[in-house]
Design a protein around this nucleic acid. Structure first.
Lengths: 236, 236
DNA sequence: TAGTGGTCTAGACCACAGC
DNA sequence: CTGTGGTCTAGACCACTAC
C-alpha cells in the first residue's frame, strides 16, 4: 500500500475525520449512514463499517443501532497514559539505571493491606523497598507489597538486574490495574532515601495490579517533583 | 446478541485473551495463525482477522505481515488517562462548581510563550487566570493562554457559566494535546488563590492543545496535592 | 514457493428504533 | 414498514517473509 494511495477504509476514515476536525459535523450531529458512504465511495459496507467502527473505538463517533452514527461529544478527552517500567524508561534515555534494595522480606499483612490484596489479616506478604537511580541520582522510591500466592519466588529475585515490575510481568501478565497520581510530601524515610527535603513536593503514584480477579501487588512509587514528570500526548 | 452467546469474533478474541492471561503464550510467543483459528472455530477469515486486529489495537498482540502474530511484550503498560473537564468532574460528584475569574485580558506574548503558540514574539494573546472551587473549596488554579486567531471571542465568554475548556471545544474540536504531570510548589499568587501554604505540594498539569497543526491554547493547572488526584484503571 | 497478514467484495441475516 | 447499525461468509488479490 503506497503512502499516496490509502486503503479504502482509511480513505473513508480520513474523510470523516477531516469533516469532524473542520467542524462540518459538530458534536451531536448525525453523520452519513453506512449506506450513504457506500454509495459515495463506491466501496462495500464492510469497508465503511470498519472505518466507522475504528472511529468509534477512538471515541470520535458514537453509534446507536437502529438510529445512526453521530459526532461524539468530546467533553471527556481521553489520552493514553503509558506507564513504562522505570528501567526501560531510563535505558531508553541512554542513561544507567541502578537499584538499591533497602528492604526485602516477608511480613504479616495489616488489615488494610490484607484487604487490598485479598488476603486475611495477618497473612504473610512480601515487602520490598527499592530506590531506583538514574545516573546515580535517586529517581523513585518503590515501596511494594506482593501477594505470595501469585509470585512465590518473588524474594529470590535479584532486583539489581530485574525490576519487580519486570519480574511480576513474567509470572503474571498484567491484566488490570488501578492507579492514582497525586502530589504529596515524602515520609521521613523516603526523603532520606531520595536525598530530598522533608517538605519537597513529590509525585506519588499508587498502583494496584490484578490478574484474573486476584490482586497481585500494591505499589507506592514516590518521585522527587523536581526530577520526574509524566508526559504524554493525545493524537486521534 | 445474548450475553451467553457471544459473537464469533468475540469468542475468538476471548479465547486468545484467556490464553494470554493464563500464560499459554508468553510475550514473544507466536500465536495461532489466522488460518489455524479459521479451522479451529469454523469461522471465516474476516472474523478471526477482526479479533486479532482488535487485540493488536489494544496492544496485546503484535502482528507482522508475512511472519505471524505474536504475544506482545508488555513492558509498556498503557492505560487510558481521561482528562475530563473539571466542571463535569465536579458536577458528576454531585457537588457545586464555582469559577472565580481573577484575570481576563489580552497581553503581548513573550518569546517563549509565542513560540509555544506558534505566534510572533510580542503578538497579542489572551490570558485568563481562573480559580475553580468545589463546594467553595479551591481545587484548581487555571492559568491559560489562548491563541486569538483560533478563538477571537474568547474573552467575551462568561467563565462563570462556561469553562475555558468547554468554550474552546466549541470553537475547535480538540485534536491533539501534549501534557505533562508533575509535582511542584505553587507560586506565591497561586498559593494565595488556593488558600494553601507556599510550600504545600501541588499537582501541576501543563497542557498544550493543537488543532490541525495550529496551537490553540497553553494551560497550567495547579491543584493542591491534598485535594486532588488523578485516578484511572487499565482494563484490556 | 509456501505461509503469513492486509484488505476488499457482494451479499446475507439479524436486532433495533421510529413512524 | 423502512432505515439504521452489528455481524458473518466465502472467496479473492495483494504484499511481505522465509526458505
Amino acid at each position: 500500500m503506497k503512502s499516496t494511495t490509502q486503503a479504502p477504509y482509511a480513505r473513508v476514515k480520513h474523510f470523516l475525520k477531516d469533516g469532524l476536525a473542520s467542524g462540518q459535523w459538530v458534536p451531536g450531529d448525525q453523520m452519513p449512514s453506512e449506506a450513504e458512504l457506500v454509495a459515495q465511495f463506491a466501496v462495500s459496507r464492510m469497508t465503511v463499517g470498519r472505518a466507522l467502527r475504528e472511529l468509534q473505538a477512538e471515541g470520535l463517533v458514537t453509534r446507536v443501532q437502529g438510529v445512526g452514527s453521530f459526532a461524539a461529544h468530546l467533553s471527556r478527552v481521553s489520552s493514553t497514559l503509558t506507564i513504562r517500567d522505570l528501567h526501560d524508561e531510563i535505558v531508553a534515555r541512554g542513561h544507567t539505571h541502578q537499584a538499591n534494595v533497602v528492604l526485602s522480606r516477608a511480613e504479616k499483612a495489616g488489615a488494610s493491606l490484607a484487604a487490598q490484596l485479598g488476603l486475611k489479616s495477618g497473612a504473610p506478604v512480601f515487602h520490598t523497598l527499592i530506590v531506583h537511580s538514574e545516573n546515580g541520582v535517586p529517581l523513585q522510591c518503590e515501596d511494594r507489597y506482593v501477594n505470595p500466592a501469585c509470585a512465590p519466588d518473588y524474594l529470590q529475585t535479584d532486583f539489581q538486574k530485574t525490576t519487580p515490575t519486570q519480574y511480576l510481568l513474567t509470572v503474571a501478565p498484567l491484566w488490570e490495574a488501578q492507579y492514582s497520581i497525586e502530589a504529596g510530601s515524602p515520609t521521613a524515610q523516603e526523603a532520606q532515601l531520595l536525598g530530598i527535603g522533608a517538605h519537597d513536593p513529590c509525585l506519588i503514584v499508587v498502583r494496584r495490579t490484578i490478574n484474573r480477579g486476584v490482586p497481585i501487588t500494591l505499589a507506592r512509587l514516590v518521585h522527587p517533583g523536581t526530577r520526574y514528570q509524566i508526559s504524554g500526548a493525545f493524537k486521534p
